[in-house]
């Protein structure tokens, strides 16, 4: 019989014992990338001339690469936490600390994947459109 004051789970899986926030890191980077791209475009198109547009596009390109790298890194961490290769478990539906840990990894990984696609989508206009008009 274990006592409620045993912090066994918290030690084993300390990584996310404190919060749910980690799974939203991917989407948060997507949101940041989106806001920065939109804000920078609004500023450049309102305040700077046409000559600044290539700089803007370059900037969005660099920002996109950064965002993708970060999301990739979070995704990789989440993938390890999901630990699919070791135990081939997809559902993680038991009421145990291990399944909770792997579930959050799974969800985080999927959210990183969707954020990655989202960032690529949002960057495409800057790749194809060359003017503010």
């Amino acid at each position: 019989m274990s006592d409620i004051r045993d912090e066994q789970d918290a030690h084993e899986f300390r990584a996310e014992a404190l919060s749910l926030w980690r799974i939203t890191f991917g989407p948060l980077i997507w949101a940041l990338h989106f806001v920065c791209s939109y804000g920078a475009t609004a500023l450049v198109c309102a305040k700077a001339g046409a000559e600044a547009v290539p700089v803007l596009r370059m900037g969005i390109g660099i920002g996109t690469l950064l965002a993708l790298a970060l999301i990739f890194w979070f995704g990789l961490q989440a993938w390890r936490q999901w630990d699919l290769r070791r135990d081939r478990e997809w559902e993680n539906d038991a009421g145990t600390g291990e399944d909770r840990h792997q579930f959050l990894g799974h969800a985080g990984f999927l959210l990183a994947a969707i954020s990655f696609i989202g960032v690529v989508y949002v960057a495409l206009p800057a790749l194809f459109i060359g003017t503010c008009a």
Binding site: S37, C45, Y121, P125, T131
Partner: peptide, 17 residues
């Protein structure tokens, strides 16, 4: 600006996923 419209168009397509 066209680029701005493009961002929102792209995100609108992405949300379908």
């Amino acid at each position: 600006p066209q680029i701005s419209l493009g961002f929102f168009s792209a995100a609108s397509e992405a949300v379908v996923i």
